[in-house]
């Protein structure tokens, strides 16, 4: 983990792309401008490989054997109809799934080739390396903005980094710094919904995990806040490997390097985003991305 507070650079081409009316996911995904906006990536990141992952709630199998590779420094978008197991799969990857009584996971989940479910592996250490952003913003109500961002560092007793510097780095990274720098000691719950979500993203990246899982991070946000978060995701992938669950096809097309389509607990297909939205291999994918799906 590097400790230098670096500020991810902003770029606005994605925002410009969105402002153009009448865009379909396919046109977004095929648009060379969107592609060009994606910075070239050097392979310093971490990757997650799923091998025949099955997740259960009691006897009910919600994820039915998924093989999938989340590539380093890429955004993998996960799409699929409600109830198909996206959240369950995501929560299996950082072992939050096992917090639910009766829930268990089978198969292998490898982080840089190391099985995170191997006996003797500390679940808490795994979660520090695989961070998560939730659907609804959930800042800690007893804490200020600063304390919220530093919560992971403080609870984990991280001493070799300057907390204030890291807080600033994370807030800048989350695109929130300018809005809150004058009131870092104000309560975190006093922010607007979109700001709260970016605060939660800052909280997650402040401990510099290897991988960030995002479960519909924009579903509670308005379009402008959504846009900010999308920009942010694009920048974060330079340092992190990102998995993004979304119901918003345009969003998947805009930010996903690769897109995975899940249906009824199965992974139907995963491919380059442009391919998924323009020329998918499976008819179910085609029906789903073209909105013919019921």
């Amino acid at each position: 983990m590097s400790t230098d507070p670096q500020t991810p650079t902003r770029d606005t081409s994605i925002a410009d792309g969105v402002e153009t009316p009448l865009q379909t996911p396919a046109s977004i995904a095929a648009d060379p401008a969107t592609k060009a906006a994606r910075p070239a990536v050097t392979g310093t990141g971490h990757e997650v490989t799923l091998k025949n992952v099955k997740s259960f709630y009691g006897d009910n199998m919600a994820v039915k054997g998924v093989d999938l590779e989340y590539r380093a420094n890429q955004v993998t978008a996960m799409i699929g109809p409600s109830g198909c197991g996206k959240s369950t799969l995501l929560r299996s990857i950082n072992r939050m799934h096992e917090e639910i009584p009766g829930a268990r996971v089978e198969g292998e989940i490898l982080l840089d080739g190391v099985d995170i479910n191997a006996t003797g592996t500390d679940v808490v250490a795994i979660r520090r390396m695989i961070g998560m952003v939730f659907q609804r913003p959930n800042p800690f109500p007893t804490m200020s903005i600063r304390e919220n961002v530093a919560a992971g560092l403080k609870f984990n007793k991280v001493k070799d980094v300057d907390h204030d510097e890291r807080v600033e780095w994370a807030l800048r990274g989350a695109g929130l710094w300018d809005e809150v720098k004058d009131r870092l000691n104000a309560p975190g719950v006093g922010l607007s919904g979109g700001q709260q979500q970016r605060l939660c993203i800052a909280r997650t990246i402040a401990i510099k995990p290897d991988v960030i899982l995002m479960d519909e991070p924009c579903s509670a946000l308005d379009p402008i806040a959504t846009l900010k978060v999308e920009e942010l995701i694009q920048e974060l992938k330079q340092e992190f490997t990102i998995v993004l669950v979304t119901h918003n096809m345009q969003q998947a097309a805009r930010v996903g390097d690769r897109t995975a389509f899940m249906y009824l607990g199965d992974l139907v297909e995963v491919d380059e985003t442009s391919k998924i939205f323009t020329n998918p291999s499976d008819t179910r994918t085609e029906e789903y991305v073209s909105g013919k799906f019921s």
């Binding site: 950082n94 939050m96 917090e99 808490v124 250490a125 795994i126 979660r127 520090r128 390396m129 961070g131 998560m132 939730f134 609804r136 959930n138 800690f140 109500p141 919560a151 992971g152 609870f155 984990n156 939660c200 909280r203 997650t204 401990i207």
Partner: peptide, 14 residues
Amino acid sequence: PSALREAALALGVP
């Protein structure tokens, strides 16, 4: 809210 517990757990807090 259980969301708070989950948020903290996901930060790698025992």
